[in-house]
C-alpha cells in the first residue's frame, strides 16, 4: 500500500498515446492500485483531501498505462471503469462485446499479457502496464489470423456477437494445448456462450486450425 499520491495523478491527461513506457511509474501505480483493491477508503482519503465529505460516487480519475494491440496508451479514467467499458466506451474498440457484465458469457474475452481474461470482470486501472490484445488486434493488417479464416470457412457464427470472444478464447485454447480433441475443445471453450448455436462449427474451426499446424 501507499500513503503517497502517485505523481501522475496531478498531471493533466488528455488520453493521448505515448511511446515510452516508464517502468518506475508502472510500479508506483501498481502499488496505488493494490491499495485501492484492499482498502478503497484509505486510498480515496489519501488521493483526495476532502474525500470524507465526497459521496462514494464521486470517484476521481486515475491515470495509468496500457498497451493495446501494440499501441501504448496513457489513460485517465474513473476507477470504477471496467476494462470492457474502457475499451468500448472510451477507446472506441467496440469489437470486444458486453454480453452479461457478470463474467458468465465470455463475449468480452481479451488477452492480457497473452492470457485470456474476461474484460468485464477486470477494472481498467488494475491492468496498469499490461499488454492487452483485443479482436481488433488479432489480424496482421489485412491478413486475417488463421482462426478468423477458419471461423469464416466453417461458418462458426451467425449473429456474430459472441464471435470476438469465441475467437480470442479459441486462440488461447490452442495456445494452452487444450485443442487436441473435440471433447477437449468443447470443455475448454465452454466459458464462451453462443445463443445462435454455432458450437459444432466453432469446434470444427478450432480443430482445423490445430490440425493444420497453424500458429495460433
Amino acid at each position: 500500500m501507499t500513503d503517497e499520491k502517485p505523481d501522475d495523478l496531478t498531471q493533466p491527461d488528455d488520453g493521448t498515446f505515448f511511446e515510452q513506457s516508464d517502468r518506475r511509474l508502472f510500479l508506483k501505480q501498481s502499488l496505488a492500485v493494490a491499495g485501492l483493491t484492499l482498502s478503497p477508503l484509505s486510498f480515496l482519503k489519501t488521493a483526495e483531501p476532502d474525500a470524507d465529505e465526497a459521496p462514494f460516487g464521486n470517484a476521481e480519475k486515475v491515470s495509468f498505462n496500457l498497451s493495446i494491440n501494440g499501441k501504448k496508451h496513457r489513460l485517465s479514467t474513473d476507477p470504477r471503469t471496467t476494462l470492457l467499458d474502457l475499451l468500448r466506451e472510451q477507446l472506441g474498440l467496440t469489437g470486444t462485446k458486453k454480453g452479461c457484465d457478470f463474467g458468465q458469457c465470455g463475449a468480452c474475452t481479451v488477452h492480457v499479457d497473452g492470457q485470456r481474461v474476461l474484460a468485464c470482470l477486470s477494472f481498467a486501472v488494475m491492468q496498469n502496464g499490461r499488454k492487452i490484445t483485443t479482436i481488433e488486434g488479432l489480424a496482421k493488417g489485412d491478413r486475417l489470423h488463421p482462426m478468423q479464416e477458419a471461423f469464416i470457412k466453417h461458418d462458426g457464427f451467425q449473429c456474430g456477437y459472441c464471435t470476438p470472444g469465441q475467437l480470442m478464447s479459441a486462440v488461447s485454447c490452442v495456445r494452452e494445448g487444450r485443442a487436441n480433441s473435440e471433447a477437449d475443445i468443447q470443455e475448454y471453450m465452454s466459458g464462451n456462450l453462443c445463443r445462435c448455436g454455432a458450437y459444432p462449427n466453432i469446434v470444427k474451426a478450432i480443430l482445423d486450425v490445430k490440425t493444420g499446424g497453424q500458429n495460433a
Partner: peptide, 9 residues
C-alpha cells in the same frame, strides 16, 4: 459480412 464479424468491425 464474415470478415466484419471476425475482426470486430
Amino acid at each position: 459480412d464474415g470478415r466484419l464479424k471476425v475482426t470486430g468491425a
